[in-house]
Design a protein around this nucleic acid. Structure first.
Length: 283
DNA sequence: ATGTGTTCCTGTCCGC
DNA sequence: TGCGGACAGGAACACA
C-alpha cells in the first residue's frame, strides 16, 4: 500500500532516529513475511551500526557497518513504528508487542522500531551493499521518477509499441519506479489521459505533459507527508500511511474537479485493481 | 518479449 | 449480531 511518497516519508521519519546508531537487538518473531527471512538475520543485524538509510523505489535500504544492507518492503499493509524517546521529546515505555508485530529492532539510543504487517505482503532481505544494484529485488526496477533519467524521451521509448493500457504501464515497476495504484490514478487524471489508452498510442505531446505531472503528484505527496512528520509522536510514532487529498482515487460517483468538465469519477477494474477516472476529460 | 490472470494474507465494511 | 462477499496502497509467478 505504501507507494513511493509514503516510503520516502518513512525514510525521513526514521533517519534522525537510527542513522549513526547501532542495533542492540533484533527480535525476529516469525520465520517469514512474503518470503523466508535470510539465514541468521537476527545475528547479522545485532551489533550493526546504521551507516545510512536510503530508498530505491518502494524499498527502504538500511546500510550496515558490516557491508550488508537490510532491504525492507512494506507491501500493502506494512508499517514501521517508533517508540522510546530517541529524540528526547518526552519519555514513555515501549508498548507491549501487538498482533502482527513481526520484527522488533532495538537501538543503542533507546529507540525501538517495530515492523508491523497484518497481511504479510512485506519483505526483508539482506544483500551486499556493494552489489545492491544486482540484487534480485532491485535489479530490474526502472528509473526513479524524481530523478533526471526519467524524462519524456525515456518514457516514449519504453511505451513505444506497447499494447498494454496506460494504467498498467505506469504500474509496471520496470518502466518507472515507485508508482502504485493511487498515484497512477492521480497522475493520469491530472494529465487527462485515459487509463485505458494503449501505451503505444500516447502522443509525444501527452508524454511531455505526463512526466512533470508524475513528478508533481509525487513531490506534493512527499511534502504532505513531510509536514505530518513533525507530529509523528502524536500519532504514536506510526510511519507508513498519512492523510492526503486525492482528486480521483476513491472518489467514485463524485463530480470531476477538472475546470469546465461536467463528468463524474468512474471506477473500473484493470488487471484486477480499481481504477478511478473521469471518462469525459481523460482521453 | 509482452500481456493477463492468480496468488499470497488479514482486516474492514456493507448488504442481507 | 452474524454471515458472506467484495475490496484493500504490491508484485512475483505461471502461463497463453
Amino acid at each position: 500500500m505504501p507507494e513511493l511518497p509514503e516510503v520516502e516519508t518513512v525514510r525521513r521519519g526514521l533517519l534522525p532516529v537510527i542513522e549513526g546508531h547501532t542495533i542492540t537487538n533484533a527480535d525476529v518473531r516469525r520465520p517469514d513475511l512474503r518470503w523466508p527471512f535470510p539465514d541468521n538475520m537476527a545475528n547479522r543485524l545485532a551489533g550493526q551500526k546504521i551507516t545510512s538509510l536510503r530508498r530505491r523505489s518502494k524499498y527502504l535500504l538500511v546500510d550496515l557497518a558490516s557491508g550488508e544492507t537490510l532491504i525492507i518492503h512494506l507491501g500493502m499493509s506494512g508499517r514501521l513504528l517508533i517508540s522510546g524517546d530517541p529524540l528526547g521529546n518526552f519519555h514513555h515505555e515501549h508498548p507491549a508487542p501487538e498482533k502482527h508485530d513481526h520484527v522488533v529492532f532495538d537501538f543503542d539510543n533507546g529507540a525501538r522500531v517495530t515492523f508491523n504487517d497484518p497481511r504479510r505482503f512485506g519483505a526483508m532481505d539482506l544483500g551486499a551493499t556493494e552489489n545492491l544494484e544486482d540484487h534480485k529485488l532491485i535489479r530490474d526496477i526502472g528509473p526513479e521518477p524524481l530523478g533526471n533519467t526519467f524524462n519524456a524521451s525515456y518514457l516514449a521509448d519504453r511505451l513505444k509499441g506497447r499494447q498494454t493500457p496506460m494504467k498498467t504501464a505506469l504500474l509496471d515497476q520496470k518502466i518507472v519506479a515507485g508508482l502504485g495504484n493511487i498515484y497512477v490514478c492521480e497522475a493520469l487524471y491530472r494529465a487527462r489521459i485515459s487509463p485505458r489508452r494503449k501505451a503505444g498510442n500516447l502522443s509525444r505531446a501527452k508524454i511531455e505533459i505526463l512526466v512533470p505531472i508524475i513528478r508533481d503528484v509525487l513531490s506534493e505527496a512527499i511534502e504532505a507527508g513531510g509536514s505530518s512528520l513533525k507530529d509523528y509522536r502524536q500519532t504514536d510514532g506510526e510511519l507508513g500511511y498519512f492523510q492526503h487529498n486525492f482528486r480521483a482515487y476513491d472518489r467514485e460517483g463524485e463530480a470531476c474537479q477538472t475546470p469546465e468538465c461536467s463528468g463524474k469519477i468512474d471506477r473500473i477494474v484493470q488487471s484486477g485493481r480499481s481504477t478511478f477516472f473521469c471518462g469525459r476529460c481523460q482521453r
